[in-house]
């Protein structure tokens, strides 16, 4: 049975708790054991703009905690993923910053020796669990349901650091969607940023980018967006709802988190997957499901 240190980050518990709920349900069915750790702190991603030492220390402390448990990390957020991956890479280099971080960790009685692998939900599902094992757990299939997958920038790039998938032509998320019977549409802006990082700094820019993607996805025939990052999900769910209310947007393309989609395919109840916590509902999503 595969076992991981479960890293939730700060956004999911506070703002997108349905992602955690659905992920736990689905991973449980797949025989993946998740080990919680109350000592985890911020992954450092939002601090990168402001202070490199604060970023690196924050990130590496989590790595050290996972190493102490002798576990690899399973991360749900792409921003956390990118941040932790970069931090792990930086610690393989020698420098004054790395030494300072090591000594600060020492005063917390923590050590990091570089033995932790950082994985994202998608890489665990694709590489460790495998499409076949997932197939076995599905008992209903989607029919005539088009999904626009949102990989999330910080998973795909910079590819030498993240080593997530082919950065120009990724496929793992598409395959994970296809296994449920849904269609992963090809859309031009597929690999573009959702715009969430600009929220609170330049909301016009952020909204404009989100709108472009939403309209592009709709044009490609998608009935929903599928997300694997709380930032992307907040942008395409909560913020899209705000934009619709303020009439910055007239047509909507609701978003669903991947474990919610997969969970429906496993026959799990929509409430248990937290679908009612998504602000925008996918109308009659259950009508797209049919017995195999």
């Amino acid at each position: 049975m595969s076992k991981y240190a479960f890293f939730l980050g700060c956004n999911i518990p506070a703002r997108v708790s349905q992602y955690e709920t659905a992920a736990r349900m689905v991973l449980n069915r797949l025989g993946v054991e998740l080990v919680d750790n109350r000592q985890f702190n911020c992954c450092g991603y939002p601090l990168r703009n402001s202070d490199r030492k604060a970023y690196l220390l924050s990130a590496v402390r989590n790595l050290a905690l996972a190493e102490e448990q002798n576990l690899d990390m399973l991360v749900l957020c792409q921003c956390c993923f990118g941040s932790l991956k970069k931090a792990a890479q930086l610690m393989t280099e020698n420098g004054k910053m790395q030494d300072e971080v090591r000594s600060l960790l020492d005063s917390e009685n923590l050590k990091y020796q570089g033995n932790v692998k950082i994985k994202h939900l998608l890489t665990v599902l694709y590489n460790d669990v495998g499409i076949d094992a997932i197939q076995k757990q599905l008992n209903v299939t989607f029919k005539d349901f088009n999904v626009a997958v949102q990989y999330g920038c910080h998973g795909l790039r910079p590819s030498p650091v993240t080593q997530f998938d082919d950065p120009l032509n990724p496929s793992i998320f598409d395959e994970l969607v296809t296994v449920t019977g849904a269609q992963s549409v090809d859309w031009p802006l597929k690999l573009d940023c959702c715009g969430a990082p600009a929220l609170g700094i330049d909301d016009n820019l952020s909204n404009s980018l989100a709108v472009k993607k939403i309209l592009d996805g709709k044009k490609a025939g998608a009935q929903c967006l599928c997300t694997v990052c709380p930032y992307c999900h907040l942008q395409f769910d909560t913020v899209q709802a705000m934009m619709l209310e303020q009439e910055n947007l007239t047509e909507s393309l609701p978003a669903i988190l991947y474990p919610q989609l997969l969970g429906l395919g496993m026959g799990i109840d929509a409430e248990l997957l937290g679908l009612d916590q998504n602000q925008l509902e996918i109308e009659n999503i259950r009508s797209f499901l049919c017995e195999e």
Partner: peptide, 17 residues
């Protein structure tokens, strides 16, 4: 407040209305 120009501003943006 210089650190406003970072993703820490997400929460403020979600409450901007």
């Amino acid at each position: 407040q210089p650190v406003m120009f970072s993703p820490l501003s997400l929460a403020r943006s979600l409450n901007r209305q």
